[in-house]
């Protein structure tokens, strides 16, 4: 495979930029397609990437996403600067949301994003510091047998 030694891509995400929201995840999808990643796995990665990207656009000032690929897994680490999440356990519950009216008008903010990341990821860690920002660490295994 082309990424036997591992590959890493870094993306900047701007908070509040709804017009560009999703472009990073479309690029991620393109990269995985070009590498010949299994389409089912690539789709799961694109979904978690998009949900995480939208969270930065909706809630944070800025964020940085790092996509890492090695022969075993695809890893996404997304760190943002923003208000953080006061109760990460609550935020993981389906339906819990602090979205504004503007976010809902964009079709988001139904409290489905973080649970959907969890559903599509093999591993998902969410840490947050109020007033500083949030970090998402996501792992998706490349072989179906590796799926948790």
């Amino acid at each position: 495979m082309a990424f036997d030694q591992g590959l890493s891509h870094r993306f900047e995400i701007k908070g509040g930029d709804f017009a560009k929201a999703g472009r990073v995840s479309l690029e991620v999808k393109e990269i995985l397609h070009d590498l010949g990643i299994d389409p089912v796995i690539a789709r799961r990665v694109a979904i978690v990437s998009y949900e995480a990207e939208m969270n930065v656009v909706m809630y944070a000032t800025r964020g940085e996403m790092v996509l890492q690929l090695d022969p075993e897994a695809i890893r996404i680490v997304l760190e943002d600067e923003g208000p953080g999440i006061r109760d990460t356990e609550m935020a993981m519950r389906e339906g819990y949301s602090t979205a504004t009216e503007q976010m809902r008008e964009m079709g988001f903010g139904a409290g489905m994003g973080l649970p959907n990341i969890k559903k599509n990821a093999d591993r998902f860690e969410l840490t947050s510091e109020v007033g500083k920002g949030t970090c998402c660490r996501i792992v998706i295994h490349l072989s179906p047998g590796g799926r948790a």
């Binding site: 709804f18 649970p115 959907n116």
Partner: peptide, 27 residues
């Protein structure tokens, strides 16, 4: 609701929506 589309959508689907912003295309 794009949140629902992301959570329940399947590859190959014909998507019907009344939300015509850029996020609907992206989603």
């Amino acid at each position: 609701l794009m949140s629902d589309v992301l959570a329940f959508g399947k590859a190959g689907v014909l998507l019907l929506t009344g939300l015509a912003n850029i996020q609907s295309v992206c989603t």
